[in-house]
Simulated scan of single mutants.
Amino acid sequence: MLRRWTLAGVVLLAGAAVGIATGSVIPVVVFAALAAFASPLIFPRSVTAAEAQGRSTDDGLAVIYWRPGCPFCVRLRATLGPAGRRAHWVDIWRDPEAAAAVRAVADGNETVPTVILAGVPHVNPDPLWLRKQLLAG
């Protein structure tokens, strides 16, 4: 659980250090906002890999495998915006089956984000491309 918040904690501590060094509260506020953005809070509630695959089969939505603290996942989530709700999100750190599914399509690596869209895996896809795909479907 702690490693899920590591990036957000580091950003918050950096903001506090900059705030103390400059004697200003503005960096603290800015870094606190960045820490919230880097936290797991910006991601939709994760489901298990099995649950996501079953739901995807029923509703045709994409499955997005991610992990907390991953800057590429944060970039993807930020780019998707509300379109990110049109997918099932699976945290590979919470579900060993999800981590195995990612390794199976990413040459044995746990490279995230990995997206399964219409049954086709996409390892670290372009966020703008994925946004268009989610909005089109």
Rank of each mutant, 00 (worst) to 15 (best):
L80R: 10
E110R: 14
V120C: 03
V123R: 05
V74R: 13
S56L: 02
D58T: 13
H88M: 04
A52Q: 08
W66S: 14
V102G: 00
R131Q: 12
A100V: 01
N109L: 09
T48G: 15
P40M: 08
G84M: 05
A50M: 10
T57I: 07
P127I: 01
L128T: 08
T79A: 15
W129H: 05
L34R: 01
A104S: 11
V102M: 01
D107I: 02
P113H: 11
A98R: 00
D107Q: 13
P68Q: 12
P113G: 11
A99V: 00
G69H: 04
W93D: 14
G54L: 06
P121W: 03
A118C: 06
A52N: 06
A50K: 15
T79C: 05
R103K: 15
R103N: 00
A35G: 08
F43I: 10
P125R: 01
D59N: 13
W93H: 11
G119K: 09
R131E: 08
V63Q: 01
D126C: 09
I92W: 00
A62H: 11
G60L: 07
P82A: 15
D59E: 09
W66E: 09
S56D: 07
R45C: 03
E110F: 01
A62Y: 05
C73P: 07
C73L: 11
E110Y: 05
R103M: 10
T48S: 15
I64W: 02
R94G: 14
P125K: 02
L76I: 02
L41K: 02
P68C: 13
T79M: 07
L76R: 00
A87I: 00
L61Y: 09
A33C: 14
E51H: 13
L34E: 04
R131K: 15
P121S: 12
T114Q: 07
V112S: 02
P40W: 09
R86L: 14
V123G: 07
R45P: 04
A33V: 15
T57E: 14
D107L: 11
A118V: 08
R55C: 01
V102P: 00
R45S: 13
V115C: 06
A98D: 08
A100T: 10
A49D: 15
L61A: 12
T111Y: 03
A36L: 15
L80S: 03
L117T: 06
V105N: 12
P121C: 06
A36S: 06
S39G: 08
N124Q: 15
W66I: 04
W89R: 07
G54Q: 13
R77D: 03
